[in-house]
Design a protein around this nucleic acid. Structure first.
Lengths: 124, 124
DNA sequence: CTGGATCCCGTTAGATACTG
DNA sequence: CAGTATCTAACGGGATCCAG
């Protein structure tokens, strides 16, 4: 399946954030850099190039001094926004459940449940 | 925002595939390995651990010989399935548009458009 | 000064071999 | 079969340099 190629892009570490940030209109390079905590200049550039290559964003250069570059979602990118926001919303809604699961997991090393002779035994 | 932590997990290279593969019921380790082209044994293990830690999947050990381990979506994981499938569907629907965009991009190095003195110039 | 390219280096993923 | 251990190659972060 060619789905792979595409999920590789949108499933990388930063693409989702960038697309989400561009939801409310164009942003310039430095705005994105400030808006995405922890991203390096290098990775922002590389990720933006990848998104541009896939036709999800446009890159508009303003040859002023100082220079300025705006990034905006294309029509294709806007269509991606729907599923992406669904994902972001899911993350927001369930973050406490996930934090609790992390807590539980870190207190053990055993599996959640075992099956012996056809009977499932849950861990208490 | 704590959304970051969560998007870091589900937005990594393999988690989405695994969740998508588990959509149709439990799968064992080797099935997942075969089903996800290009994943290494190591990364499959690590990613499954992460998903388990986040409470998205359960790990059920059958202490038989040879051993057998089943992975299945939890209720929380099932809820994630909706947004994930939306993403996968988007990828399938637009893969040709993306391939075309790649083609176009690789034939150039210039920006899509420039703005000079308030006027946008699109690249032909 | 902004956007971005390049280099060096530490971390991480991938390949392979090995084990309960 | 389902992992772990180890080695190596690739990738990302940070600093530095550069063009406009």
């Amino acid at each position: 399946m060619a789905t792979r190629q595409i999920l590789d892009r949108i499933g990388d570490k930063w693409s989702l954030y960038i697309v989400a940030l561009l939801a409310n209109g164009p942003r310039r390079f430095s705005e994105l850099k400030r808006g995405i905590d922890g991203i390096s200049q290098r990775m922002l550039t590389l990720t933006l190039r990848g998104l541009e290559r896939d036709g999800l964003i446009t890159r508009t250069l303003y040859p002023t001094i100082p220079p300025r570059v705006d990034y905006a979602l294309t029509e294709l990118g806007s269509k991606l926004l729907q599923p992406v926001m669904a994902l972001v919303n899911w993350a927001n809604e369930h973050q406490t459940a996930i934090a609790a699961a992390n807590q539980r997991f870190d207190d053990k090393t055993e599996p959640d449940q075992v099956m012996v002779q056809g009977v499932v035994y849950e861990r208490r």
